[in-house]
Amino acid sequence: MHVDVFDQYHFTPSRVHDLDPRVKVLITVLFILSNALLPDGSWPAFALAWLLLLVANDQSGLGLGFTFKRSVVALPFTLVAVSAIFSPQGSPLAVWDLGFITLIPTDLGLIRFFSIVVRSWLSVQIAILLVATTQFPDLLHALEHLRLPRTLTTIIAFLFRYLFVLTNEVFRILRAREARSAGLPGVKGGGKLSWQIKTTGSMVGQLFLRSYERSDRIYQSMISRGYIGHIRTLNPHYMERQDWLYLFVFILFLVIIQFVGWVS
């Protein structure tokens, strides 16, 4: 398996791709914040937020349905919110007696549940759009400009770089494990649990040591090129009129959405 499945970036020439990454990060966070601020059940406002998202999708040149298609990642977690349906604050809609527990779905509970699902679903889509339109190194630069500690952004930069190298190593290790565990007659697929855990543990240990030794060599190659403790990079990003304009218009839309959400 090739690890390119990790690449979330989709290039098409578009205004959204060209935006300063700081603007995109801010827009993303503000959009999620705005969703969180909207009261439960403010469907017109949620609908407007979705509209805004569709416009962003369209502007990105990736197609109206781009983030929608990928938003299924958010689905499994909605299970956790199901219990909100049984909020005792609203008026009961039914009574389900399961023997050991009595469940009473209520109208407010339902509203709460669907509001959570919609918020989460809208938020995950803008995050998808962010990484689809922004190269990860630019995202990192944006975070640096937004005052994340250098130590942290550097760790994340290394993580991003070696994610691919190390996951490839994991695939190699896994393939070796499969080759070894498949051929044994009389052992049912994968072997015994204790064996599984022990091999997994030593694989983790092995991977750790290889990674550690790699970090040693990386360090050597860094000091060979003059590193003495402070990472320096060039961040060629400048906010232009267009960037400010987009930021301003987007915030304006969010204000309208909030207004709709709280007034209706």
């Binding site: 290394f158 993580l159 770089r161 070696y162 190298v165 750790f208 970090s215």
Partner: peptide
């Protein structure tokens, strides 16, 4: 670099 590669290690 150790923390960076270790982060990748945990991820992997």
């Amino acid at each position: 670099p150790i923390m960076g590669v270790m982060a990748a290690f945990i991820f992997a």
